[in-house]
Write a protein that binds this DNA or RNA. Structure first.
Lengths: 194, 194, 194, 194
DNA sequence: AATGAATGAGCCTTCATTCAT
DNA sequence: GATGAATGAAGGCTCATTCAT
């Protein structure tokens, strides 16, 4: 329903976008229907035309941003790569590339992932892993001996989280991307997993 | 002022503890003065005898839990270890041990670390790094060639976050600690860093 | 927007009126949003549909009552009178007449004028002198020799305040309007000024 | 118990003074026990040692300031003056002199006089007229023909209020005391009354 | 005499949501 | 489809006052 970087005209997209901005500047818990109304210029009662309630708004914001990430990864990653290691490397590079273009989306996803609100939002496991299915499958099918652990969560721990933390650290200027490059980070991650 | 696992008698400690429980079950943003009052049996106005305002309550909850972690690490880790690698390994083991005994404290800290609330609580950098200073110094002073990166944030990314995520995964039964042991995780982390 | 003595139907007017009553019986400082809610039968949150906050309520109450006075004076006083003394006399008579019909409004205005609350309500000088501009101009333009002092505040001291105090004294039965008539008061005032 | 301009040492006087300051800067309604505690450095529970409750504090503040005025007038005015007009004139001068030295006291009294709080404080008529008894008696006993009206309230209207308003206008720089002198004001008042 | 601790009641304001239009 | 109006519930916080020490 919503394309990345497309100019949104519909009220639905306007709401999704503005809530994202509020989350980034004030946090998920600061989101209120009246704030959304003010930020979008849409009456707060009108929001209920597009969403059933506040939780639905938050849930959709989370899922739309995850979908953006998943779509990006699907488009970016060459699934014909046969070398498993190379595949994983290109996965991490894709996450990094996405984060450079859509840092906000990554931060929004991150905030949800670490918030207990996520649990109240009734999000299925399938939805929460959207965009990573292929990675998990690939690692799962790989011949024994290559990967140390194949549990999805471990893969995320060493293959996804470091990329996100690296992007954050650069943004906060805790790290200089020239002295500590993304390739170094990816190398470290690869070494950990294999 | 507050000892780990000691039975709290004072109202101050009672409040700190109950707020921690609320955070774990409902999230930081769900903490309200009236909820604290109900959970502790203390009148909400009395809370203001011990804390200046709600932010002060949250800040103290964060710092007390961090202090518990810092104290535990300081006590647990043998600072006479000369082997840098061995030192880091014992650091990670200590974090894991703490998490086994005080899983809640670790989760509370984690929730704060990923919440934008943290920024508005006016917590100094020194306070936020409490418990990790020695680790950072050690790595910083280590002879060149041993560690790939010495930035604190990288150390946390590969040396602290995986332990926390591992503990979480076990709790959520996403991982079986018998098939994927803590030692495996630590090995992976060590390989990444060195 | 609001007409004198008209039967109010809108919630806005209902609030303005009831707050006026509360002020008269309990004082400005006793006005609370919940008291307004109870007195009007309007939910306290609904008050915020019509007013931005409590200060806005008080400010509007003051200005509406001043407007009533100003409108009354403008309508009552014959501005074609050429004799300056006669003009002032008719001014005082008009204030007295207003006070007889709208004693409450005069008392509300008086309470605001003597309250430090007035200062924090951000009321412009123009607004605070509403209804008296013509009087001030008239005296200012009068040929020298007629009036002793032309400062607005002096005019109010001897031309407005005595009327208000007289009306109050009658209400409190400190004075018998038959033995001490309004004309006597006006005569005294006129003698003072000229 | 309390002398004018004497340096207060006792807690009672300290409280009376600080409450006066709060009233002048924030208004009577802003006075709170905790504010008094903070301003005086005295615990709020200790205030109850010297006063029965908050109303008692306010009442005493009012009466102490009125007493100061009454004492000053009694001391300043030469009761041996036989000329009634001259006596009244010296009365007004005394009020003016008091206002110059104790402007704050006059303003505190004025704020109470125009506040409905005064009615709740159970202040007897005798107390409220303290300091003016002699004036009233004098005018009452004066031979017919000299004064137009002898009601106390009229005397205050033309003989006391103008002085207070004049002092206020000077303070607010609405009037230049050199171009409009106190003698002019007194002359105007005298002309009104006689 | 003096006060730290405690609290129920109340303060102003914002909340998510509903509903008639 | 869109919204202005309305509200009960809850938010954080301050209040005057009491009481044990």
């Amino acid at each position: 329903m919503r394309q990345l970087r497309e100019k949104d005209t519909s009220k639905y997209n306007k709401i999704i976008d503005e809530v994202g901005k509020i989350i980034l500047t004030e946090g998920i818990s600061s989101v209120s229907m009246s704030k959304i109304a003010k930020a979008t210029g849409i009456s707060s009662s009108t929001i209920y035309v597009y969403f059933t309630d506040k939780d639905d708004v938050l849930k959709k914001v989370y899922l739309e941003n995850k979908k953006n990430l998943a779509d990006y990864l699907a488009k970016q990653i060459d699934s014909t790569i046969t070398d498993d290691l190379q595949y994983i490397r290109s996965y991490m590079e894709a996450v990094y590339a996405f984060g450079q273009e859509n840092f906000e989306a990554l931060m929004i996803i991150d905030q949800f992932n670490h918030s207990p609100i996520l649990m109240q939002l009734n999000i299925s496991v399938v939805e929460s892993y959207a965009g990573f299915e292929m990675l998990f499958e690939r690692v799962d099918r790989a011949p024994a001996g290559i990967f140390k652990a194949v549990e999805p969560i471990i893969l995320l721990t060493f293959g996804y989280t470091p990329i996100v933390m690296y992007l954050q650290a650069i943004k906060l200027e805790q790290i200089d991307p020239k002295s500590t490059t993304i390739n170094q980070i990816i190398d470290m991650s690869i070494k950990a997993i294999t």
